[in-house]
């Protein structure tokens, strides 16, 4: 539902726009509001980073409500939604992606998906996050911040990280190098989305598909043996 007077998103190129950024690729959910301008500058107005474990579905919309309140804004003020597409544990990851897609759809605004690892740290680096099953998700970046390799999923022992390593410091021992702790940030998500936000014509209107998470792994195709919802306490 376009609001009368709102900037049509196809004209984002020319305007400073209000962007909601979400990420649930790690155990810390991120919800942030930022003013983004076509020169690439992003002013973060409010941000919540909530250690939510596997409670992303419970806490994400609560965090969105909070950042809007912090910034004194409402859903009607949004011009675009940015979402991290992972890689990350699937169930939590989908919560962020479907939330972003639904919020954007309900407000008739574009949704932009980015690799979540792009939003961790800056400059030349290797980013690692917890992929469970004793593995890490990783990507490497050149000095100008562009992704050089990845995202991938590997055992830490099999990675030969290039440059400084940032991300989940619990893997330092198994990587054999120090890891500077770093997490997904609103500023990082906006930076990763800059090229897409600058090209609104690429975000086709009502037919835009829901961004697909970077799963990197196939589904475990084992049929459930005991799906029996219990009906008594």
């Amino acid at each position: 539902m376009p609001d009368a007077g709102a900037v049509p998103w196809t004209q984002l190129r020319w305007a400073v726009v209000l962007v909601l950024a979400l990420d649930t690729a790690t155990s810390t959910l991120v919800a942030g509001l930022a003013r983004w301008s076509p020169d690439g500058a992003a002013e973060v107005l409010a941000e919540r980073a909530v250690p939510s474990g596997n409670r992303h579905a419970e806490l994400l919309t609560v965090a969105v409500t909070e950042v809007l309140a912090d910034a004194g804004l409402s859903m009607a003020d949004l011009d675009a939604v940015v979402t991290g597409l992972g890689p990350g544990p699937f169930t939590g990851l989908r919560v962020g992606v479907v939330t972003a897609a639904a919020l954007a759809d309900a407000r008739d605004r574009p949704v932009v998906g980015v690799c979540s690892l792009d939003a961790i740290g800056s400059g030349a680096r290797t980013v690692v996050t917890d992929a469970r099953r004793k593995e890490v998700y990783w990507a490497t970046y050149a000095a100008d911040g562009t992704r050089a390799d990845g995202p991938g999923v590997s055992l830490p022992e099999e990675l030969a990280p290039a440059g400084p390593v940032v991300g989940d410091a619990r893997f330092a021992d198994r990587l054999g190098v120090p890891v500077t702790p770093a997490e997904v940030t609103t500023a990082g998500l906006l930076r990763a989305a800059a090229a897409q936000l600058a090209d609104p014509a690429g975000l086709s209107a009502s037919t835009r598909p829901t961004p697909v998470p970077l799963y990197l792994r196939r589904p475990d195709a084992v049929p459930p043996t005991s799906y029996k919802p219990v009906t008594t306490a």
């Binding site: 994400l60 409500t65 989908r94 897609a101 639904a102 919020l103 309900a106 919802p229 009906t231």
Partner: peptide, 21 residues
């Protein structure tokens, strides 16, 4: 609920987002 957790969460998160928006 009841149902498959991962499946339930997609619908729940979507519904919460539409309700909020």
């Amino acid at each position: 609920g009841p149902g498959l957790t991962g499946a339930l969460l997609v619908g729940l998160a979507a519904a919460k987002a539409y309700a909020l928006a």
